[in-house]
Design a protein around this nucleic acid. Structure first.
Lengths: 225, 225
DNA sequence: TTGATTCTAGACAGAACTGTCCAGAGGTCA
DNA sequence: TGACCTCTGGACAGTTCTGTCTAGAATCAA
């Protein structure tokens, strides 16, 4: 599920072997396009560039996709089916306290299988250039912040305050991701208490912080394999 | 100073009239490039496109700039000379309370003359594709968050907490800008108290909120002329 | 073996873009 | 008026990209 480990179908032992003269699948094209979208933006998703990345000529692209815009529509759908839904699901997860609930959200940041940060940023960047993408993104931002506000309300925050805290939590995360600080995880974990204090206005329980640290270390270890 | 009101030299009554066969100035080219950078990203800053926007052929571009990369370097310098410096200056402004200090930062959001939000985002987007731009941006992010942390410390926040609150304040703002909610100002003003509560962990003084509202309404009125 | 179907390489035509070059336009000064 | 300088349009050559088209490769069923 992570970007770095996505193999071409033909190189992936877990996939049914390709038959005949098939060199790349539709999914291979889509994966290559996702990579370029993230690395270089929507405008750089070029058929010629993708074909070079895949080591094939351009022809099979036009077999699988009607046109470049067919591909970009598929890219947007891929994003839509993953990131926002995951964050909403995490917000709805049971939690013993607001701090624990926020740690569930933070799990989106830690675990690339839950939330693809670079893809999120790439789509946000794309939305700035394309009103129809922007419209879809705005709608999902509203859904996500509503889910986060509902999460705060579950822990007795006043509705108006819940909305604002939801926004601070969400948009701070977007901004932090955008800045690409690339801080080591141990550094970030050392700051979790103060982050939770700021986001909640309440002193966090040490146990919650500790459990989150354990989770993070497990995911980080697993992701680096 | 605002993007929307930037005229070509030849259309601006406040500028010295152009003599001879000069149709556009170097600044005109640079302004056009800034607009495209913001609207469509660095890769779309194309000489042909700019020439069309300016209603001239491409030739004078190469009179004023050695190459396209000469132009993009100038674009980056324009950003560097404006946005980060303004925010640092605002953070250093005298304030009677932390809430008042944060309102000084928020003035960057309100007043396009202080801080060009779309340009900031465009540069951030560009940085994701260009390591040298990213390096410069990362350095300025560190400077800005350090200035904001110092601001929090002026009001007796523990240094570790000051750093985190500075980040939450700054990155939330980045994320909020990235999301392009385009909320009416009256809506935003209604939320200021709760934002200040979240950012500071302290109940804001009504007078501070009121003064900020007055400032905002004045700027908004002035900007819409 | 033949025919149908699914993929593939690569040629073709056209569009968009860059940088170079040169003739021409406009202005100033002696 | 001529010389010089600053800008300008536009032609030229080369590069990169898109979509279309066709022949060929591989597989399967009759």
């Amino acid at each position: 599920m992570t970007r770095a480990t996505r193999l071409l179908h033909r190189d992936n032992p877990d996939q049914i072997p390709l038959n005949g003269n098939i060199k790349v699948t539709r999914q291979d094209w889509l994966n290559a396009a996702l990579e370029v979208l993230i690395e270089a933006g929507e405008k750089q998703v070029k058929v010629l560039l993708l074909s070079e990345r895949l080591g094939v000529s351009r022809s099979s692209f036009y077999w699988y996709f009607k046109s470049r815009s067919d591909l970009t529509n598929a890219l947007l759908q891929t994003w839509f089916d993953t990131n926002p839904r995951q964050m909403i699901a995490q917000a709805a997860m049971p939690a013993g306290s607001i701090c624990e609930a926020i740690c569930n959200i933070h799990k989106c940041v830690v675990d690339p299988a839950l939330f693809d940060i670079p893809l999120d940023f790439a789509v946000r960047d794309w939305a700035r250039r394309d009103p129809s993408v922007q419209a879809q993104l705005s709608a999902t931002d509203r859904d996500v912040t509503a889910a986060l506000a509902a999460m705060f309300e579950r822990f007795d925050y006043d509705p108006a305050e819940a909305v604002i805290r939801a926004r601070v939590l969400y948009y701070m995360q977007l901004g932090y991701n955008a800045a690409e600080l690339n801080e080591p995880w141990e550094t970030r974990l050392a700051n979790v208490s103060n982050y939770l204090l700021t986001f909640t206005g309440r002193a966090p329980l040490p146990k919650v912080v500790e459990d989150f640290g354990i989770y993070v270390r497990a995911i980080v270890e697993e992701t680096e394999l």
